[in-house]
């Protein structure tokens, strides 16, 4: 019971995502941060307002962190399907009859 609870906590803290999710997270983080940088410079320059540029940059980065860091479900849509142990279903004890698994 305690072990199970601990495992759940550990899993939540680790926040693992699947391989496709990792690729997506990497791509999103790069694009978003670069876009935030460009937008904050351009908007700041046009408005001649350096504080606006600063706050846009910091705000955009905070949003990016919020989107990328937690293990959101959209990063976990392709879970890895492991093969059963020993090549057979776990429930089966591998008793064969007439070439078929019966138990």
């Amino acid at each position: 019971m305690a072990d199970q609870l601990l495992d759940q906590v550990r899993e939540a803290a680790e926040g693992q995502i699947d391989f496709k999710g990792q690729e997506l997270a990497e791509l999103l983080a790069t694009i978003l941060l670069a876009a935030v940088g460009v937008i904050s410079f351009v908007v700041g320059f046009i408005n001649q307002d350096i504080k606006l540029a600063l706050y846009l940059g910091l705000g955009g980065t905070a949003l990016t962190l919020a989107l990328i860091v937690p293990p959101w479900p959209f990063l976990n849509r392709h879970p890895v399907r492991w093969l059963p142990v020993g090549g057979v279903e776990k429930k089966s004890q591998g008793i064969m009859m007439d070439g078929q698994v019966i138990a």
Partner: peptide
């Protein structure tokens, strides 16, 4: 990018690069 800590590190690391370039 497999775990929370690694994602945090990567995003923050690239953030510093963006900061420097914008500056």
């Amino acid at each position: 990018m497999h775990s929370t800590i690694v994602r945090g590190q990567n995003v923050f690391g690239f953030f510093t690069t963006v900061c420097f370039v914008v500056a």
